[in-house]
Amino acid sequence: MMSKIVKTIAGISFPFITIYGLYVIAHGHLTPGGGFQGGAIVASGLILLLVAYGTDWIIEKIKESHLSILESLGALGFIGVAFLGLIFGGMFFTNFIAGTSMLFGGIPTSTAANINTGGTLPLMNFAVGLKVIAGLFAIVLVMAYAISKEEGE
């Protein structure tokens, strides 16, 4: 439980950190970074809240079991896209979207970065991002919870 100043600042900076993290995830196929890095940034924003508002407050809002479901969904999304490649493209992990008119289906040109390229790569980045956000935050949450329990006793 921190002072009011810390809480306020954390509350203000949290959306910015989250947006930045999501940006890194979404531009994973264009710029340095990607699902893992962006996910870690978002998770660090969540951890900021955890530090500022205390474990008990967070535990009320987010359950650890929900996080693990999210984590599984992220992993499933990743392997699901790979399986879709098998179904639509004939091979596991095939980039079946590239070169079509679907979202992210554009062909990259050499001059400018275009977010609408990359095929299945952005999708996989999203999946990885989801998994990392949920996983990393779950780890810290459980550790913080255990520490707060120990101190409480």
């Binding site: 693990s68 479901i69 984590e71 599984s72 969904l73 992993a75 499933l76 392997i79 790979a82 399986f83 098998l86 091979m91 596991f92 992990f93």
Partner: peptide
């Protein structure tokens, strides 16, 4: 034809589905 990938992918899919199932 797909079996080498599927041998690895099936338990992996199972692993990720287990917490949900």
């Amino acid at each position: 034809q797909q079996s080498p990938a599927l041998i690895v992918a099936t338990p992996l899919l199972g692993a990720f589905l287990t917490p949900l199932i």
